[in-house]
Amino acid sequence: MSNFNNQVLASMLYKYFSSTPKIFNIKALILVLIISSAPVFGAELDRELILKSGFIYNFSRFGKWESGLINQDGFTICSPDKAFTEVAKITFYEKQVKRLPVVIEKIDVNNDLNKCNVVFVTKKYYLDWKNRVNQLGRRQVMLIGENKGFILLGGHINFFILSGKIRFEVSVSNLKKSGLKLSSKVLRLGKIHGENSHE
């Protein structure tokens, strides 16, 4: 069943409810449920990405770039994943970071990252990233990922999920090497990479 048919059914049902006081017609409702219950995944924004974009907003607010972000017109958050950039455009709408308007850029992993202040590498693009990472150098770009091993590849912050909630690990040493710092407000909530780590 397509999205369109779902909407038509929803509209019919809405009219039905609007026009009749007999609102407890269970048979009708179950029928509609069965007819319209085929998967329509992706019909709404990905909640996990929405939350992660919120975290990235906070990492940006509470991060410190040694260069001081001088001569910039905007604060640029990049990702190769269009699904994320679409979500981020909504999350960051009219938001400012370091008194700069936020710019969301969909980038190609192989392109120059210099225009980015933050890069988020989703699982989908992790392998591309892994192949590219040695050519990156140590620019002042906050690197955020969501894959095991991201920190070992020089990443700064890595998301993981625990009991249905988003958590993150931070590599303070990688941040330092890149000329970046994170406020203790963020660090106290994250897991510091290397603590109790056998890797």
Partner: peptide, 15 residues
């Protein structure tokens, strides 16, 4: 006041 980060830590990934 940093309220957002605390809220995000409490939010469930799935509905």
């Amino acid at each position: 006041v940093d309220l957002e980060l605390e809220s995000l830590m409490n939010a469930d990934v799935q509905v």
